[in-house]
Simulated assay, not measured.
Amino acid sequence: MSTTRRWFGLVSMDSILYAIGGYNDKYLKTVETYDLLTNKWTRVTSMNLPRRVFGSAVINNTIYVCGGYNDEVLKSCEYYSTNTDEWYFITPMTIERRGFELVSHEGFLYAIGGYNGNESMNSMERFDIKTKQWTTKANMTSKRYGFGSVSFMGKIYVCGGEGNSDRKSCETYDPQTNKWTPIASMNHGRYYFKMVAFNDNLYALGGKADFPIDIVVFDSVEIYDYYSDKWFYTTSLPQKLGDFGV
């Protein structure tokens, strides 16, 4: 990237990666794209507001960002149009959130958990891109921020994070029943890691954990097998990573 970033958003759309906002001795609102075909980074229009530890997701070929922090916890949202190369504000979330997850799932956006400046949260709200309105949905069973989340096998999966005593724990949300259900815990408690879905598996990548003396950054990777409801260690990352984009 042309700009060093941490606590930023990284999304992909049409073979293009978008590195959005973050922090580099100051709050960033700049955006740059990486073209997989040309192997080049290009600057595009910046967001309206600088943000770090925010949520980002793609739905219907549109990039959405919400919440985050820039000396205050935010609930504002905006989207990026590739047609106009401009960012536009949309209806804000009902609650300020940082360190939360914004997940695109079956035509809706879900804002999950996070930290509101006073405490970690287990609340969730859903954005309807047609009505432009947010609706409160069922709370997670655990409060979390800095956790991993992904849309997978018709449900939303969340794991790890801070804000609760068990950083290994995982649960899944079924939009059909509006209920959260615990599943097998990871082998390693972690926060500010990344979780991705590939084929029939989930991957938990890197992250951080608190130890008695210091914060430790991991290179370990775990795979969740959907059919056996078990986590297994696999090949580690080439380096230890936390607060990164994937």
Rank of each mutant, 00 (worst) to 15 (best):
F198D: 00
T135K: 13
E119C: 08
G113V: 12
A204P: 14
S142D: 07
G161C: 08
Y191S: 09
C159H: 05
L28Y: 06
A111H: 08
D166I: 15
Y18E: 00
T45E: 08
S104Q: 05
R126Y: 05
D166W: 09
F127M: 00
F127E: 00
G113P: 10
N70V: 12
E78P: 15
D166P: 03
F54K: 03
F232D: 13
E125A: 03
E101H: 02
L37A: 04
E106S: 12
T131F: 06
R126M: 07
E125R: 01
S151D: 07
R52H: 03
S81D: 11
M140R: 06
W87K: 04
Q133P: 12
Y115R: 00
R126H: 02
T38G: 02
T91I: 05
N178M: 05
L37V: 12
S46P: 10
G206W: 11
V58D: 00
T30F: 03
G160N: 01
G245W: 07
E86L: 15
V73C: 11
E106C: 09
P50D: 02
F152D: 00
I20L: 01
Y224V: 05
I20P: 00
V158M: 04
R167A: 15
S81A: 11
N116C: 13
S2T: 15
I63W: 00
S149V: 06
N60V: 05
F218C: 05
F127Y: 12
E32W: 01
I59T: 01
R5A: 03
Y69D: 00
K179D: 04
I223L: 09
K208S: 14
F244R: 02
L17C: 02
G67D: 01
I20W: 04
D85L: 10
Y69N: 01
S2A: 10
E171M: 07
E106L: 11
D174E: 04
R51E: 01
T181Y: 09
M121K: 05
G242N: 05
W7Q: 07
N122P: 06
E72Y: 15
F244D: 02
